[in-house]
């Protein structure tokens, strides 16, 4: 049985359909990326999982049990939601002790998790003086108090410094390797590429696809092509159009030719005597696939410069 199961989940805020008949499953022992552009419905879905937002219809369960019915929720599920849910006057250590006490966890866990996320030195500082990244770490510490089997994280990399992001990646990989289920949302696939095993892609509240990272990479391969840097970009586009290729200007000097190989493109440049400063293979990045998948019906800024 999957650790998290989402079935036909729908949420309407008045006329806005934030999440539309969404179904997916999150297996244990893997990191699942929950991806979608701004407003796709990621936060709403995660909050429905945790019983904070009520679903209009559908269900979300942990091993078959909704969050509200879990006997010891913090021992089963740890959640990092979008930051700033602390009382500014409270000290970090007190925040954690208060949660630990309420959840029936040993109070000593508070110090342990603070050390784990690298906040051991500021344990007695008031949270009001914390930076965004420190708050994010404190949220993570709160989620880890109960050493839960399932971790749910909403854009956890927000505000973290590069070391912090690296640490988080390693940490999440480690959590999954020890058999836990990790569901982590992001609007940037590139941020997640090295962390996730699977992706659940969401756009405008609907599931676009659930696949493994390898599955996504296979799709990316089909988007190969060449990128040319040339002072004669305009002429190049005309020439290539004449040759039947899909060429497009990306800026003053760069042209991308979809599906082209160096063996095909090189002779054409030579034949037409086009000055060329650089020629690079354009392996469609996962990010491009992701963008093309999510910009389809959503329109918006995601679709700029990315053919479907």
């Amino acid at each position: 049985m999957p650790a998290i199961e989402v079935n036909g989940l729908t949420k309407r805020f008045g006329p806005v359909v934030a999440v539309d008949d969404l179904s997916f499953a999150v297996p244990a022992g893997r990191v699942t990326g929950f991806l979608g552009p701004n407003g796709a419905g990621k936060t709403t879905t995660l909050r429905m999982l945790l019983g904070l937002v009520h679903a209009t219809s559908g269900s979300a369960t942990f091993d078959g049990t909704p969050y509200q019915d879990l006997p010891d929720p913090l021992r089963r599920v740890g959640a990092v939601l979008e930051a700033t849910s602390f009382h500014p006057g409270r000290r970090a250590i007190h925040h954690l002790r208060m949660v630990a006490m309420g959840a029936g966890l040993p109070l000593g866990r508070a110090e342990e998790v603070l050390d784990l996320v690298g906040l051991g030195d500021v344990a007695r500082r008031r949270v009001g003086g914390f930076s965004l990244g420190m708050r994010q770490r404190l949220e993570l510490a709160t989620a880890l108090l109960g050493d839960p089997q399932v971790l749910i994280l909403d854009e956890p990399a927000n505000g973290l410094d590069p070391q912090g992001i690296l640490w988080l990646r390693t940490f999440l990989r480690h959590q999954a390797a020890s058999g836990r289920a990790v569901l982590v949302s992001s609007h940037l696939l590139s941020e997640m590429e090295e962390t996730v095993d699977e992706v659940v892609i969401l756009a405008a509240g609907r599931l676009v696809m659930q696949t493994t990272l390898a599955g996504l990479a296979a799709r990316a391969g089909r988007h190969g092509g060449m990128r040319v840097r040339s002072p004669e970009a305009d002429r190049l586009v005309d020439v290539l159009a004449g040759a039947g290729a899909m060429a497009r200007r990306v800026d003053a000097e760069h042209v991308v030719v979809d599906g082209a190989t160096p063996e095909w493109l090189g002779p054409i440049l030579a034949h037409h005597q086009i000055v060329c400063y650089g020629l690079a293979e354009e392996r469609g990045s996962l990010e491009d696939v992701f963008l093309s998948l999510t910009s389809g019906d959503g329109g918006g800024p995601g679709s700029i410069g990315h053919p479907g």
């Binding site: 945790l50 879990l70 602390f86 309420g102």
Partner: peptide
């Protein structure tokens, strides 16, 4: 009301979902 003002209610509802 402090819980709602500082949004600590999110954490509180995670600890006490009922």
């Amino acid at each position: 009301t402090t819980e709602f003002r500082h949004k600590t209610v999110t954490t509180s509802f995670l600890v006490v979902p009922r």
